[in-house]
């Protein structure tokens, strides 16, 4: 059973990571103003009604990855807490990545639905 638990954790981690990356791009893309890390996490929670369980700390490595891929740009701006905040905006490449990711997600969802339609999860 330990293996099953490990498998489930691994699966969830991998699926979440991809999904959160896509969600981050979606949130930044739809944000009317530059958005910072903490706010992004709040928006992810809000968008998923808190149903997507994830540790906040896992979002920052994803933000770094997306920025390294030139999907986002960042700059340091003012913050009421004193320390400067890192604000993010999406790039054209990021928009293309979001569109492409959503397409993949759609295809994957359809494929999985077909494959697993006969299975019922209790």
């Amino acid at each position: 059973m330990k293996n099953v638990e490990k498998f489930k954790n691994k699966l969830e981690r991998e699926m979440k990571s991809g999904f959160i990356a896509l969600l981050i791009l979606h949130i930044i893309s739809n944000s009317k103003e530059p958005i910072y890390g903490y706010k992004i996490i709040q928006e992810v929670n809000q968008a998923t009604d808190g149903k997507l369980k994830f540790h906040e700390g896992t979002v920052y490595p994803i933000l770094r990855y997306l920025q390294a891929q030139h999907f986002m740009k960042s700059y340091l701006g003012e913050s009421p807490t004193g320390a400067p905040r890192k604000y993010y905006t999406i790039t054209e490449q990021g928009k293309a990545a979001l569109f492409s990711g959503l397409e993949s997600w759609q295809n994957l969802r359809e494929t999985l639905s077909k494959v697993f339609e006969s299975l019922e999860v209790s």
Partner: peptide
Amino acid sequence: EINEHLEEKFH
């Protein structure tokens, strides 16, 4: 980066 986030939450 992590510290900034935690500061933010504390705020």
